[in-house]
Design a protein around this nucleic acid. Structure first.
Length: 584
RNA sequence: GUGCCCGUAGCUCAAUUGGAUAGAGCACCAGCCUUCUAAGCUGGGGGUUACAGGUUCGAUCCCUGUCGGGCACGCCA
């Protein structure tokens, strides 16, 4: 921060530490916590240190509090300090301390809210990581909004953030997509078999088949007899539906196409990944790294990880498969890493992937997973532990599914038959800003009821507009004033003495603490709640107080205040990937 | 059946991770535009935090049990 005004919580915590050292040698490591009070009568900040020390000092908490206050070094920012309740120490800030923050905010602009909480530690956030086998749906949308917002928050809180998307380009699912596309292509040429019930049904598969046809005409057409080899005769008339049959079909497909298979596979992957990337970009979500699962195999990292596990004696053979003894590390049962057919499981490449993440030197690795994957956590952490890694570096944030509501009814979201709502449709329906905001309006590990009608409505019920409207209102006022931004820096803010003004100032000061808490708790929703509160206080102030008053000194001070409010609204909305419009 | 998560105002959700009198928004009722954007504001009622115990200065938060809901329990990803 480029100002002499300190971060109050840190400042007061230091004072209390000194005070504690003066009155006792007990609990030198006790964390000293300053909290914002809920009630104005309790002052601005509160400290519960006395109550924490009381037990070991065998003294009445209120007496300890009194001793602490007497030992507290003087602070130029404090109006008064008092003991309250069971032994709380309440701090009352001087108005001037708050008023100075207007200048600080106007000076630091979009950097206000930044802190060194993260101390430049390297943190990776891996999110979305959806299989590139079809369009992103609204479930992915929440993970995308959550991850992107969280990454921004961590960055503001002083972490060095890398945003990563893990591309599952190696597995069976990709084979199924390639097969599906090829079958549609054959269908187009009238030489296919009934489309398998367990292949990808979506319209986008037909679209890809069409593209291949346009580019290469009949080059990949083959006789249908070869297709059904190893399959029951009925496969010519009725769609197959079992996994075994589909695997047989995939094998036939690879054999028939030979080297051309790689082309189809690569084509559908590139196509889907490109679509995904565009979709996310339009959603305001971008990544630093797109990490290929296939590359783990190509670079021998999977074999390497398996070898290490083997050296640690935590692998064993049974029923022709290779198992990882995850029960030794808290899992419910042991897990297969290599199947009877010699193929590695998804778990195997995931072990290699996470080991690789750790070896890339991130101090902290955050995975954002759908909550339905929670059962997967013990085995991944178990594997890392087996490899001698410090699993506390890995944090997994679970995101519950969002349930869409339209006309008060659940909008169906079955992944089968391509009936699911895509993220793209959602964006086109409610707009990017509303979608981004609504997704982070709840604690992410809670179910989210997404009210589509509300998100679309241009009414005061809609929290997105409520916050954006506050921003636009400030812009409008400043435009009518017509002055230069530099003039605001000269404002004498000591005339901001109304209770609403002092409350707003405190609210602005809180911003960096909220960012820090959101970073610590991996909770973007705190930013959304904060913005709603700040906007609410502003709207109230707006209605009760006129800014463009004849008293030019008072006018300038109030304009400086609302300009700083605008700055914080902008900074907060930016964290969430929501625009801050000048006009509405 | 086993494991994890959840249960807060009529509805949707908060509560700075153990702090003070549990807060917002909808919905409902009554008001505010000759004045910087009414996509706004002001006021009002609404609670045994599912239930029963326990831990302590203090519990929505931690422990135990019961009831109710969600998810996961593959050589799928």
């Amino acid at each position: 921060m480029t100002s002499s005004v300190p971060h109050f919580k840190t400042h007061f915590a230091n004072l209390f530490r000194q005070a504690a050292n003066r009155i006792t040698t007990v609990d030198p490591h006790a964390r000293i916590e300053l909290t914002r009070t809920k009630q104005a009568s309790h002052g601005d900040y509160s400290c519960n240190l006395a109550m924490q020390l009381a037990k070991s000092l065998r003294q009445n908490p209120r007496e300890v509090a009194q001793s602490l206050i007497e030992a507290l070094p003087a602070s130029p920012y404090l109006e008064k300090v008092e003991v309250a309740g069971a032994g709380f120490i309440n701090l009352f800030l001087k108005s001037t301390a708050k008023q100075q923050y207007v200048q600080v905010i106007l000076h630091n602009k979009e950097a206000f809210g930044c802190s060194d909480y993260g101390q430049g530690r390297k943190v990776q956030v891996e999110f979305v990581s959806a299989n590139p086998t079809g369009p992103l749906h609204v479930g992915h949308g929440r993970g995308a909004a959550m991850g992107a917002s969280l990454a921004n928050i961590l960055s503001m809180a002083g972490f060095q953030v890398t945003r990563e998307y893990y591309v599952n380009d190696a597995g069976r699912q990709m084979d199924i997509l390639a097969l599906s596309t090829w079958l549609r292509y054959l269908e187009h040429h009238g030489v296919s078999i009934p489309f398998p019930a367990n292949a990808y049904q979506g319209e986008y598969v037909r679209a890809m088949a069409q593209l291949i046809h346009q580019a290469h005409a009949q080059r990949y057409v083959h006789h249908p007899d070869q297709l059904v080899e190893g399959l029951p005769d009925s496969a010519r008339e009725t769609p197959i539906s079992t996994d075994d049959e589909l695997d047989q079909l995939i094998a036939n497909c690879k054999r028939i196409l030979g080297q051309d298979y790689a082309y189809i596979h690569n084509f559908v992957l590139t196509e889907q990944l490109g679509d995904c990337r565009n979709d996310l970009m339009e959603f305001g979500v971008e990544f630093d790294t797109w990490f290929s699962e296939q590359s783990l195999f190509d670079n021998g990292l999977v074999n390497h990880a398996m070898q290490l596990l083997d050296e640690k004696k935590v692998l064993y053979q049974q029923d022709g498969a290779t198992w990882f003894r995850s029960t030794d590390f808290g899992d419910e049962k042991d897990r297969v890493v290599c199947r009877e057919n010699g193929q590695f499981t998804y778990f195997a490449s995931d072990i290699a992937y996470h080991l690789n993440k750790f070896e890339r030197g991130f101090d902290q690795v955050i995975n954002i997973w759908g909550a339905d994957h929670h059962g997967y956590i013990p085995r991944v952490k178990g594997a890392l532990q087996a490899l001698g890694q410090d699993t506390s570096r890995l944090e997994i944030a679970l995101v519950q599914f969002a349930v869409l509501y339209r006309d008060g009814k659940k909008a169906s979201m079955s992944t089968r038959s391509g009936e699911f709502v895509t993220l793209r449709e959602l964006r086109q329906d409610v707009g990017r800003d509303a979608a981004r905001f609504f997704y982070v309006l709840r604690k992410s590990d809670q179910h989210l009821d997404f009210d589509l009608d509300l998100a679309k409505s241009q009414s005061n019920d809609n929290p997105v507009y409520y916050v954006q409207y506050a921003h636009a209102r400030v812009c409008s006022v400043l435009a009518q004033w017509g002055g230069e931004a530099d003039e605001l820096l000269q404002a004498d803010t000591s005339v901001l003495t109304e209770s609403a003004e002092l409350a707003l100032l405190q609210k602005l000061i809180d911003f960096s603490d909220v960012v820090e808490t959101a970073a610590r708790e991996l909770s973007p929703h705190l930013i959304a709640f904060y913005l709603k509160e700040l906007a609410g206080e502003f709207h109230s102030y707006y209605n009760s107080t006129r800014f463009l008053v004849p008293d030019t000194s008072l006018q300038l001070a109030r304009l400086a205040l609302v300009a700083s409010i605008r700055q914080i609204l902008n900074n907060g909305l930016c964290l969430l990937g929501v625009s801050a419009p000048d006009k509405m």
